[in-house]
Amino acid sequence: MTQLILASASASRSALLTGAGLTHTKIPAHLDEDAIKDECLLCGHSPKSVALKLAEAKALHVSSRNPGLVLGGDQVLQLEKDLISKSHNMDEARVLLKRMSGKTHYLHAGMALAENGMIVWSQVETAEMTVRTLSDAFIDNYLAQTGNKILSSVGCYQLEGEGVHLFEAIRGDYFTVLGLPLLPLLAQLRNLKVVMA
């Protein structure tokens, strides 16, 4: 049986794999993600391509040092023409939520599988997220309720929690929003005979 390795410290990605019955080991890829992002943007890559490059870099980094099938995943948030990074504090979170209010942004979730230091498969999926118009009072209350835990999410929300209150419409796969598009991943794992077809 091929060993599946998740090249990430992400608790949500690990939980999604576990929920789907996929036994795996977590070996985080410690990379300078901002440097990779900056290099991609300098080279003119689209936000979708940046998500894919980050996922591939993580998978390759861990695969070159460990036997088994390595899954790399990453997600980027595109608001208008900008790639949004994680907020460092609650003041930055407040500014971002005000900016997202009444607008649509895009979550691009990249995945890559690597084996023996080579990419064997990669794909990116996109979810279209429309934020309702948010009042200042709502934002203040939301930040007080959620606390610092939302700083770990790029858009300052977790859809599986209180973050669902931010939205008026979502187009795309739920798993893509959570950062790991499970359906295409499972299809590829069946193709590779890692899981039963």
Score class of each variant (00 low, 15 high):
residue 41 L to M: 14
residue 41 L to D: 07
residue 81 K to N: 15
residue 83 L to T: 06
residue 94 R to S: 05
residue 74 D to Q: 05
residue 84 I to W: 03
residue 64 S to T: 08
residue 105 H to E: 01
residue 76 V to P: 03
residue 55 A to V: 03
residue 53 K to V: 12
residue 73 G to F: 01
residue 101 S to E: 10
residue 69 L to E: 03
residue 48 K to V: 06
residue 100 M to F: 15
residue 75 Q to L: 03
residue 83 L to F: 15
residue 66 N to C: 14
residue 96 L to S: 06
residue 106 Y to F: 07
residue 40 C to L: 04
residue 85 S to H: 14
residue 86 K to N: 06
residue 100 M to L: 13
residue 65 R to D: 02
residue 80 E to R: 09
residue 60 L to S: 04
residue 89 N to G: 11
residue 61 H to T: 14
residue 61 H to S: 15
residue 45 H to A: 15
residue 74 D to G: 10
residue 63 S to R: 06
residue 101 S to W: 04
residue 64 S to G: 13
residue 80 E to V: 05
residue 82 D to L: 07
residue 70 V to A: 06
residue 58 K to D: 00
residue 97 L to P: 03
residue 78 Q to H: 07
residue 103 K to R: 14
residue 57 A to N: 04
residue 49 S to E: 12
residue 60 L to K: 04
residue 84 I to E: 00
residue 98 K to Y: 01
residue 67 P to D: 13
residue 101 S to R: 09
residue 98 K to N: 11
residue 71 L to I: 09
residue 60 L to W: 03
residue 78 Q to L: 01
residue 40 C to E: 00
residue 87 S to Y: 04
residue 86 K to C: 08
residue 85 S to G: 11
residue 83 L to H: 11
residue 57 A to R: 02
residue 54 L to P: 04
residue 91 D to Q: 11
residue 80 E to A: 07
residue 101 S to K: 01
residue 101 S to I: 02
residue 50 V to W: 07
residue 97 L to M: 10
residue 63 S to T: 04
residue 64 S to F: 10
residue 50 V to P: 02
residue 42 L to A: 15
residue 66 N to S: 15
residue 84 I to N: 01
residue 93 A to R: 06
residue 59 A to P: 02
residue 40 C to N: 00
residue 50 V to I: 13
residue 106 Y to I: 06
residue 87 S to M: 09
residue 82 D to Q: 08
residue 92 E to M: 08
residue 84 I to V: 11
residue 99 R to C: 06
residue 95 V to I: 13
residue 70 V to D: 02
residue 46 S to C: 06
residue 52 L to D: 10
